[in-house]
């Protein structure tokens, strides 16, 4: 069983071994460059409006660091598990890769659950909504866009796993899984700046 997986030889970088793989790889990095600008526009607006509370609750009163810390740890860990998955991909261990991607998806799901709880808490306990102030609009748009990216990521990896489980590792499936790992790391990068700029700076004032 075990030898069956390792028997089939793949090149050193199976995600870039075909022309299609190369094109996807390059195109996806350019896409991430564009995504950077999308998030930058939301960060810029947020930084401009973060004190426009319209007389309502302020960021210092609203945010709770323990919750944000747990969310950060969840997403950072999921970044590590998707690195493990990428390494399994490069060494041609298909089942191991799938296993790590499943863990990645579950951690992402836990993060998303925490975020939904958080938003729900803000709306019902503090009356902090997307309409309550300019800061509220900027906050939910920025953090919500990131949350939507997490949701897209979870959906993406679920479909990839279900669709390719029986196909196994080859030069056709390798780029697909590799690009998902890149996307997931990018989401983590955005979160690093969200917890720094939104939550930590919101606590500092």
């Amino acid at each position: 069983m075990k030898s069956n997986e390792a028997m089939t030889k793949l090149p050193a970088n199976p995600e870039r071994a075909t022309l299609e793989g190369k094109n996807k790889f390059l195109g996806f990095w350019f896409f991430l460059g564009g995504e950077t600008v999308l998030f930058a526009s939301l960060f810029g607006v947020y930084l401009g409006l973060r004190n426009a509370t319209n007389g309502g609750v302020t960021s210092n009163e609203l945010f709770e660091l323990p919750l944000v810390f747990i969310a950060t740890m969840l997403l950072l860990s999921s970044s590590l598990t998707s690195v493990f998955a990428t390494m399994a991909l490069k060494t041609n261990h298909f089942k191991r890769m799938i296993g790590w991607f499943v863990v990645t998806g579950l951690l992402g799901l836990a993060f998303l659950g925490l975020e939904i709880y958080e938003f729900n808490h803000y709306v019902h306990e503090y009356g902090h909504t997307i309409q309550s102030s300019a800061w509220g609009s900027a906050f939910y748009t920025l953090v919500g866009t990131h949350g939507a990216h997490v949701f897209v990521g979870i959906s993406w990896i679920t479909i990839l796993i279900v669709r390719n489980l029986r196909r196994g590792m080859d030069l056709y499936t390798a780029p697909k899984f590799y690009l998902f790992a890149l996307y997931w790391h990018f989401i983590d990068v955005v979160w690093i700046f969200i917890f720094t700029v939104v939550y930590l700076m919101g606590k500092v004032g």
């Binding site: 390059l26 990095w29 350019f30 991430l32 950077t36 600008v37 930058a40 810029g44 401009g48």
Partner: peptide, 27 residues
């Protein structure tokens, strides 16, 4: 083999930085 990806992402980061500073300045 990451020269072009590096150009792509760092150009994105450059535009992003300009965008953040510009928006903050405008608001």
């Amino acid at each position: 083999g990451h020269q072009y990806p590096a150009w792509g992402i760092f150009f994105g980061v450059f535009v992003a930085g300009t965008c953040v500073v510009g928006l903050m300045g405008m608001i």
